[in-house]
Amino acid sequence: MSDPTPTSPDTPAAPPTADEIYRRICALIEPFNKKGVAVTPQTTFAGDLDLDSLNVMDLVAAIEDEFDIILPINRLPDLETVQQVADEVASILKG
């Protein structure tokens, strides 16, 4: 840990497109989708997917690792739908 600069050699030079971000998030949601809900951009985590606060935070950890970002859990109250999370991830990736 002598070099504190974030380095991830595997990250491609071009940031993922909005569509790709959405698809990758959908894939991460699947293990949490116990009710087998058909996920759309408008699907909500608490309501449609019936995730409790711990499930949501575990999903956030998976999203953080997928995109090598930090998504602080204090911002979660504003992120109710899959599309809102995808937009937030896109915005974080842009910096």
Binding site: V60, A61, E64, I70, P72, I73, N74, R75
Partner: peptide, 17 residues
């Protein structure tokens, strides 16, 4: 503050974050 949660008792996960 911004709140970041790391996996339980996992030093590697903390380091990554």
């Amino acid at each position: 503050a911004d709140i970041v949660r790391f996996r339980h008792n996992n030093a590697e996960d903390l380091a990554r974050r």
